[in-house]
Every structure is written in structure tokens, then in C-alpha cells.
Design a protein around this nucleic acid. Sequence first.
DNA 1: GTCTATACGTTGATAGAC
DNA 2: GTCTATCAACGTATAGAC
Lengths: 219, 219
Amino acid sequence: MGDQIVAVKAKRGQRSKESIREDNELIILAAAEKVFAKHGLKGSTTKQIADVAKLPKSNIHYYFHTKLNLYRRVLESIFVEWMKAAEPFNTYDEPKEAIRFYVGAKMDLSRTRPFGSKVWANEIISGAPEMEEILSSRLKKWVDTCVSSINTWVELKKINSMGDAHTFLYMIWATTQHYADFDYQLIILNNGKKLTDSEFEEKKQQVIGLVLRSVGIEP
Amino acid sequence: MGDQIVAVKAKRGQRSKESIREDNELIILAAAEKVFAKHGLKGSTTKQIADVAKLPKSNIHYYFHTKLNLYRRVLESIFVEWMKAAEPFNTYDEPKEAIRFYVGAKMDLSRTRPFGSKVWANEIISGAPEMEEILSSRLKKWVDTCVSSINTWVELKKINSMGDAHTFLYMIWATTQHYADFDYQLIILNNGKKLTDSEFEEKKQQVIGLVLRSVGIEP
DNA sequence: GTCTATACGTTGATAGAC
DNA sequence: GTCTATCAACGTATAGAC
């Protein structure tokens, strides 16, 4: 993250004002995601964000006006990425492929963007006051589509019935996001060692296997 | 929660000082669990806790000295309850029963004590700075026992192998705790309606079914 | 044991020099 | 567009009257 900030800053020669704004907004958004992930909306301070972004505190307010506004922008950006990862579920007809790629994409996101997942988790835990709209309209819509796909597979006897399709979907969310949200716990229980990329790939395949078997598909 | 506080207060006639302390500590701990769940350690204020407990702010400091100390007491109390729920895993020999009762107990805890689960989640998300000791010694020890039970079942061909037993255990934690930590999201996606007790019981059985099938046990 | 008053640091946000 | 200086509000914690 720090390297990212330095890299963006170094590239600046004589740049247009729009470009400076764009760069700084990205730097601040990345810093904010990290800080909000650790302390939540209320627990984070604009000074912390400014320090991580290596900018004076007043610049945060200059670009985003209020802390709440910056927070909303972070949430929005996470949601967009999340929905991108969710596409496999609608592009594959066979449950085995759809589930495999969706769970895989979610696991990859937990690995590459853990802070985003944590900001999301924090927001939900504290009652989702800033996300009700996103959840009740945009996410709800996607969930409905997804649930009907799962129900179709059940009707076609391609997978076992689990009663309510939501239960299955929530298990996928919970299990994959656990690798982002609870990463510190996983590290401590792994004797203080972070998983290497290849170890993580292994866990990913194991998770895919468990999820597939849970609905009766042999991986 | 509010009723609980009123009930404890009303019972006081002429009580010993020890008993007053005990009651107030319980009231404050319950209030703190609720507030810490919503805002995390940094985001919570002693005033909020005092207001929920219906006591003056200074009493919080009188009984627990510092906010951090109170927070640690809340975490400790959650951990104890958590370990109690974990007993089934060691008291049943057959995986089908052990898993069924453990997952059931975890689901029940998510239903009856969601705030505790959220405080725990918040603490892990923010890097577990106050819990490293609990995690790396006491929780680690329990996990090791649990993992070796699972491995024994695999060796006895009572359940399918999933590669690393931790992956299976983490899936159980994630899925069950999701019903506490993400309860607001679940409500919104359920059209704003909280699950009734009997609906929750249904979900619980579905989760148990998915978990059992994921290791090849027909529920 | 209870609670008001207050010390003293930190916070979000802005004004205004550069 | 950048950044120092500043402020009012709020934070934790304590002192001391009851």
C-alpha cells in the first residue's frame, strides 16, 4: 500500500489539475480503506488516514469534504468490485463450474483486497447505517437472481436441495470472507505464519471442494 | 437488555456492598457488550456505555477503571461462553453427532448472544491486539484437539478428507457466526423481517445439513 | 458507593496565507 | 491546489462533595 502511494506520487511531473486530483483521490481512498478496515467509521480519524496517505489532514477534507463522505465512497468502491467477482454465478450454466469459479473469485478477493472486505464487515456489524440502500436494492436484486439459479439447479436435480437457497449462498459468503475478515486469527492459529500464495491456493481448492460436496457435487 | 437492567436494579433492597458491585458490574458488562459490538473499541465511548447501563459515566470508571480494561473483561466473558458451546465436539465420538451438536450450539449462540460474537469479530478484524494471548494459547489448544478429532474421523473413513481439517473447522465458524455478525444484512435481504424462532430453527437444520454433507455424511 | 464538576488531550472541520 | 494555524465539540479520566 505504501509503495503504491509512493509510485503514484513519483510519476507526477507537470500534470494537469484533473490528474492530480484523480491521483490524490486514489491515494486517499486506498489509505481510508486500510484505516476504516482497522477501526471502523467511528474509530477512524481523518488524521490517521492523512498519515497513511502521507498528506496533510486538511487535504482529506479538501478532496472529500467530510469523513462520512469518504467512507461512503470506500463502501461504494468495494461493492462494485464485489459484484464483478459475482459474475461467474450468472455466466456458467453448470452448477459445478458456476460454484467453482464464484467461490474461487471470492477467495481471490479475500486474498487481494482484505481491507475492503473488512470495511464491509464492519459496516454490517455496526448496523449497516450507510449501506441500507445498496443492500436493499442492488445487492437484493443480485441475490434474487442467484437464488433462482440455485433453485433451478435443484429442480433439475443437478444439486441437492438445501431447503432455502439463501442458506447455501450465505455459507459461501461467510466461508470465503472469513479468509479476509479473520485473517489475523488465521495467522495466529497458523503459528504466526501468513499463508504463502501456494498454501492459499490449496485452501481455496479445499473450500471449493467442501462447498461443492455440501450440495452433493463430487469435485 | 434494558429490561434486564431494570430487573436487576429493582431487586435491590438493603443489599451488601459486594452484591451491589456484582450487580452493577453485570449491568455494565452487558451494556458494554452491546456498545462495543456496534462501534468497536475505539469507536465506543464510556458515555454511550453509561447511558445504556443507565448509570453515570464516572461509575464505569469506578468499577472498571479504564475503558480498555472493561473491553478485556467483555472479551474474556465471550470466550468462556464460546468454549462451553464447543464441548459437544469432544464429548461425542461419532462425527455425525459431534458435528450436529457443535454446529447447533454455535447457531444457538449466534441467536442468543449476537453482540458477543460481534465484539469478537470486531476485535479480530482490527488485528486482535487485545486477544493475542487468548488466541495463541487457549484457543489454539482447543483447535489442535479438534483438528485431531477430525483427522481421526478421516482415517477411520467416517468422513471424507478435506485436505486440511482447519479448513472445515473455519467453515463451521464462519457460517455459524455469520448469523450473528451479519444479522442486519440478513434482515435487509429478508425484506426487513427478522427471522422468527421457528424460521431460525429451520435455517439451523439447513446449515447442519450442508456442513454434514460437505464431508460426505448424509444428514 | 454515587455523582457533579472539571482537567486536559484529541477530533472534525475550516479559514486564510502561500 | 497545498498546508499551517485555529476552534468548538467531544473524549477519557479523576478529584472531591455528598
